[in-house]
C-alpha cells in the first residue's frame, strides 16, 4: 500500500528573470515500510522533490498524496498538521535547539502538539534505545558529537511514529564511519519498526542501504534500481555507482 504518491509533479522557480524547471513532471510512489533513496547530480531536483513530498513547499503542478491526504487541497494550517502527525524530518545540519537536552529535543514535536511529554516516555525510551543514546539523554547538543546530534534528530523524526521519515543528506556533515552508523540506524528503524523512509543523498554508500534508489536528472526520474534482499552492501554500492556513471554519460 502506498504511503506517498506523487503524480506529474512540476516545480518552477523564477531566477533572475529566467524560469527554472527544478522538477519537470515526476511520478513517484513509496510503499509502507519501504526505504527509498533519491540520487542525482547537483541541480537534478532531489532536494526540491523532498521539500514537496514533505509539504514544505507547494508544487507548481501535480498532486501529492501523503498518508491519504491530498496536499493540494489543504491550506497552510492543515498542511502543518499533516506534517506534524505524518512526517519526520532529518536534516544535514541536525537543527537541534541548543538550549534543550537531547530528550527534550526529541519530544519537541509532541510538545508542539500540546501533549504531555510524560505520556510518551515509553516511545521516548524506544527511540532512544534505537538510536543508542539512552545514556546521553540529558546532554545538550553542544555536549554531543555530530553523529550523536544526528541520532537525536532521527529520534525526533520518529517520536510521533510518522507515516514517513524524510532525510535530506543525513550523512552529508559526518565522517564515513559516523555516516555508516546513521545509515545502519535508519535501515534498522525500517526493518525493526517498519518505518517508511526516503533519503536524499549523493553518497552511493548511503544509497546502498535503501531498498530502491530513484535517480533524478534535469527534474525527471531518469531511472530506478530495486535491490534484492540478498545483495550485500558492496554489490549494492557498486550498482549505484554504475548507474550514476551511466546517467552522467
Amino acid at each position: 500500500m502506498s504511503v506517498l504518491t506523487a503524480e506529474s509533479l512540476t516545480r518552477q522557480y523564477q531566477l533572475g528573470g529566467h524560469v527554472v524547471n527544478a522538477l519537470a513532471g515526476v511520478d513517484f510512489s513509496v510503499s509502507e515500510g519501504e526505504f527509498v533513496g533519491i540520487m542525482g547530480p547537483s541541480g537534478s531536483g532531489k532536494s526540491t522533490l523532498l521539500h514537496l513530498l514533505g509539504g514544505l513547499d507547494k508544487p507548481s503542478d501535480g498532486e501529492i498524496t501523503l498518508a491519504g491526504n491530498k496536499l493540494s487541497l489543504l491550506n497552510d494550517k492543515e498542511t502543518t498538521l499533516v506534517r506534524r502527525h505524518n512526517v519526520g524530518f532529518v536534516f544535514q545540519f541536525y537543527n537541534l535547539l541548543p538550549t534543550l537536552s537531547a530528550e527534550e529535543n526529541i519530544l519537541l514535536p509532541i510538545l508542539i502538539d500540546g501533549k504531555d511529554g510524560k505520556q510518551y516516555q515509553k516511545r521516548l525510551d524506544t527511540v532512544l534505545k534505537l538510536v543508542g543514546l539512552e545514556s546521553r539523554r540529558s546532554h545538550k547538543p553542544d555536549q554531543l558529537s555530530g553523529g550523536e546530534q544526528q541520532r537525536v534528530s532521527i529520534a525526533r523524526a520518529m517520536i510521533t511514529e510518522p507515516a514517513i521519515v524524510l532525510a535530506d543528506e543525513p550523512t552529508g556533515n559526518l565522517d564515513s564511519k559516523t555516516g555508516k552508523i546513521i545509515m545502519e540506524l535508519l535501515r534498522r528503524s525500517c526493518d525493526e519498526l517498519g518505518q517508511t523512509i526516503i533519503v536524499v543523498t549523493h553518497d552511493p554508500r548511503a544509497a546502498a542501504y535503501a531498498d530502491r534508489v530513484v535517480f533524478l536528472q534535469d527534474g525527471v526520474v531518469a531511472s530506478q534500481i530495486a535491490f534484492s534482499e540478498l545483495d550485500d552492501l558492496a554489490v549494492r554500492r557498486q550498482t549505484v555507482i554504475d548507474a550514476m556513471v551511466e546517467l552522467e554519460a
Binding site: 494550517k77 502543518t80 506534517r83 506534524r84 502527525h85 524530518f89 536534516f91 537543527n95 535547539l97 508542539i112
Partner: peptide, 16 residues
C-alpha cells in the same frame, strides 16, 4: 530564523 523554520517543519503552526 532557522530555529523557527525547524519548529515549523516539525509541525508548529504559524499561530503557535
Amino acid at each position: 530564523t532557522r530555529e523557527f523554520g525547524m519548529l515549523r517543519t516539525v509541525g508548529m503552526t504559524r499561530r503557535q
